[in-house]
Nucleic acid binder design. Structure first.
Lengths: 189, 189
DNA sequence: GTCTATAATTTGATAGAC
DNA sequence: GTCTATCAAATTATAGAC
């Protein structure tokens, strides 16, 4: 199921992903990508015939990468440890990319996105809420875990927006602290 | 301080704002705006010489409108009542616009925005966190109110992203429920 | 305030040679 | 896989008439 790409294709996706996170889907152009990786725009079209192909590939790869980092939500680790792993994924993304989550950017402009790309973004959020629900499910009723999971993902995404917009990453750490506090109190009740 | 605009200028801003919320800054073009309000693109340039002028005007007007709706955070209403008023602003925005908050969209692409526009977006988030802090300050230590306020705004923004990306507005209501629960527990402690 | 006309640039995409 | 060359369309913006 996990598609593989040539070295050059991956290189193109790297540049495109970084750019898309900062400016959205329309912010990347075939010409800019081409010159960034040292080829001509026609060559980029060879790897990704249409722009939606490129967009979908990037989001799909993004999903796989994060799924790999998170691992199985149903394993034996403690709920709080899993939550902290989730937090670290977001912190790393923000600190290393100086921009919001790829799917936060694309999710916001979902309405004007090619349908395949929007669908893949939707899958991403499904991944994240599912994983988080799985991480909490050992300690909470199923419905409660699901509601809490969706809230956690929402809050993390929003905190990245404020961090970028205000150029102050402490907004992400602040929200993580608040969420941890809230989750702990929920687990006790 | 609050700038006023001609009827036509406001009409242009209405269309541009709706469009920008769904697709970002680059998603609006002078030609599209022009035809939507029944003039030619040169006329749009008459009202807003450069595109950043238009962007800044829209965000500034957005800020005033919300400030007016929220009113004074330091008045005599109860903290929880104020919080619910804040929630209703977000619910209305999502339900009536079928898109994220204007400044969520623009905040995410902050890095690639004209500086005046990015600055105005930054002011918006300042407005929101300040107001919310003010609403909580009667019942909480100042530092605690500030941290909680920033978290609330973050979570609401993120919940709008999930609502749009998953085409399911219950994500916003869910997060509002969670926040209310959390705030109440904080007020009691 | 609005128009016509136009300049200068950028965009996604394709045909066909190597 | 990459190139040259090119197209059709869209973009921001301006000059100048009415």
């Amino acid at each position: 199921m996990k598609k593989t790409y040539s070295a050059k294709a991956n290189e193109i996706m790297d540049v495109a992903e970084a750019h898309m996170r900062k400016g959205g889907f329309d912010a990347v152009s075939f010409r800019d990508l081409a010159s960034a990786v040292g080829v001509k725009s026609a060559s980029v079209h060879y790897h990704f015939p249409q722009k939606p192909d490129l967009g979908q590939a990037i989001v799909s790869r993004y999903r796989s990468r994060i799924a790999e980092t998170l691992g199985d939500a149903a394993d034996s680790r403690a709920s709080i440890a899993k939550l902290k792993l989730l937090f670290s994924v977001y912190s790393t993304a923000l600190n290393s990319g100086d921009s919001v989550c790829l799917c936060c950017m694309l999710g916001a402009e979902s309405r004007y996105l090619p349908t395949d790309v929007a669908a893949e973004v939707s899958l991403f959020f499904g991944d994240m809420t599912d994983w988080t629900r799985g991480a909490l499910q050992a300690d909470l009723p199923k419905a409660r875990a699901a509601a809490l999971a969706a809230h956690i993902i929402s809050a993390l995404q929003g905190a990245m927006v404020l961090s970028v917009a205000l150029d102050d990453n402490s907004h992400l750490t602040n929200t993580q602290k608040m969420l941890l506090r809230f989750v702990k109190s929920e687990l006790e009740s």
